[in-house]
Design a protein around this nucleic acid. Structure first.
Lengths: 339, 339
DNA sequence: CATCGTTGCGCAATCGATTGTGCATTATGT
DNA sequence: ACATAATGCACAATCGATTGCGCAACGATG
């Protein structure tokens, strides 16, 4: 092992090795040599030399000169969740297909971290920035705009950039109707049903609540709003909410609309700790996790259509959107045995 | 909205705005101005102008000139799994703490994708490359070496770079003993137990099998090797394996050592489809998923210690390893009710 | 008053790839 | 044979930040 790489390998070195010039080497290596009328013979020789010497283009130099980085950024609340991790994975694969390099940064649903990450992304001269589940997408859009970085919102919409989101209201209504169907099948169509989880400040939760209420109303059921408890996404907040419900009603609700798998985790933990049996209750979860689904096939779960959402995302990047605040809604899928 | 950013904002523009020079602006903005004896007054003025103009350093230019990118790369089999997504998340947070920018790429346990991703990373001049769960880490180390990019292996070890992995053999032995303890508690200490999932080609699976066998042996149990079925990670392969077992033995095993949550998913699906009851069987899984754990608190699960593993990773990066193929083993944790 | 040391800052080269332009050769047309 | 066109390639400027070096202005010292 040498003490250090004696000399970095550049197109200048390659030019000498191949008996040519840097500009020719560059053109050959980046594929524009046809336009420059480089002979096939020389191109082949240069390619051989480059391969032999194990050359690798310096992306920073390329980006600097081209004034475009070939990088596309995404900020994400977290990786550690099947919905978001799947978004990251599909996003990366699609970016790669398009010759773009994806960089993803987690921001923990924290507006300040979101903005810091966006600053980083701008520094790295990303060509676009996808704001996934951002608590404050409009601030990010405003930060990016003067730098010529277009943003697109995913999962949660904003007003200053086009957005791709799930059809939350419709999905929630369908899920709620499925829950009501289960209750009816059990012969207890009028039993109490509650909504747990999410943040009332975020668009998705509000829409889901609207869908939830609409479904109840359509079935002639009126429920007090106190049965709607958007207590945050963290699973920790589920326990106090359930405790309070139990204390007040001296009984568990017959059905629960759970607003995320993270909340579901908290609820399941509470049930286990309290010694209650989850299978006596109808669960509908607006989110999907394969392990949860397979362990509890009777659960009703809504799977957001990540592949389509990401596909639309890239379409928006490629075709300019009709308006700055266009919102594309993607229908999610409802899963669960019709037990 | 302007047709385009009229002029990109650079230190040259800032220098004019602040009535100074590019080199001074640069020094002020990157914090080295004290060394250059720039007056506090001028520094403050430049900072004000920069903030006011919403300036953002061009990282490619900086990287090019400094000959270091400030980027650290990681390749990963997939995001869509709680173990790996957690690794990505912790890695990114730790990198950020150190002023590094993390880029992560999924390679689907495919050696070719691993190498392509490594090429990309080298092109972006990552300062280090972490190969997580790589099927062929040594090839990557060989690719990186001539470019002066140090690699570190995570989760699966290699011979050409230091590695941080879980104590697979110990963990598997402990897990197996816990399973045996459950069997004994049920009064059926000699019932059959099988091992399902993983790849026999990979180090971790081999070590876990060794631990599994060692625990059986220590308890005076000899099991035929045909009960060890490393049928791959995908959940799809679990079904045929279980079908075959059932066909041959006319009964289910009393305990199953499952080698990953992905395999567990396949097994659970099979149980549900076949109408078997999982709770009659002792499950031990060498992997952890919070939802699986909370839905099946009686499951024995091994949680690999991701925070510590990543911490050791960064220590290896900062302190040179004692030898090129040093392997650091991190003890995992065993979870599950002592029901 | 001359010398020397500080303080404060700007000049210009540099990192490596890209690309507009120009200059030799060689083919083609008349 | 001569003008024109096409072919094949190299020169040199450029992207934006960094950094070794040097120079002026000023104060301190003898």
């Amino acid at each position: 092992m040498p003490i250090d790489a004696p000399k970095r390998l550049t197109i200048y070195n390659l030019a000498i090795l191949a008996g040519s010039s840097p500009s020719t080497v560059s053109a050959v290596l980046n594929g524009t040599w046809q336009n420059r009328r480089i002979s096939e013979k020389l191109a082949a020789r240069i390619l051989a030399v480059a391969a032999d010497a194990d050359y690798s283009v310096n992306m920073q130099a390329r980006a600097l000169r081209r004034e475009r980085s070939g990088i596309i950024g995404m900020i994400l609340p977290l990786y550690d969740n099947r919905y978001f991790s799947s978004i990251a994975q599909v996003f990366e694969a699609e970016a790669r297909k398009r010759g773009l390099f994806a960089i993803v940064s987690c921001t923990n649903r924290d507006p300040q971290q979101e903005q810091e990450a966006a600053q980083m992304m701008i520094g790295h001269r990303v060509e676009k920035l996808i704001c996934t589940g951002a608590t404050d997408p409009d601030s990010i859009a405003r930060m990016c705009q003067p730098h010529g970085v277009a943003t697109i919102n995913l999962d949660l919409p904003g007003k200053l950039a086009p957005s791709v989101i799930s059809a939350n209201r419709d999905g929630a209504r369908t899920l709620t109707e499925a829950i009501l169907g289960r209750l009816k099948a059990r012969g207890t169509p009028n039993d109490p049903i509650i909504f747990v989880g999410g943040r009332i400040e975020d668009h998705n939760t509000r829409e889901r609540i609207a869908g939830f209420k609409a479904a109840l109303k359509a079935h002639g059921l009126q429920r007090p709003d106190e049965n709607i408890m958007p207590c945050g996404y963290s699973g920790l907040h589920a326990a106090p909410v359930l405790d309070a419900y139990l204390l007040k009603h001296k009984a568990l609700p017959s059905a629960i609309f759970v607003n995320s798998t993270i909340t579901l985790e908290g609820i399941a933990r509470w049930f286990h700790q309290q010694g209650h049996n989850m299978s006596e209750i109808v669960f509908g979860c607006f989110d999907w996790d394969p392990l949860a689904a397979v362990f509890n096939p009777h659960f009703l779960m809504v799977r957001q259509n990540v592949p389509i959402m990401v596909e639309r995302l890239f379409e928006l990047m490629e075709r300019p959107p009709s308006s700055a605040d266009e919102v594309i809604e993607i229908q999610p899928e409802i899963l669960g045995d019709v037990a």
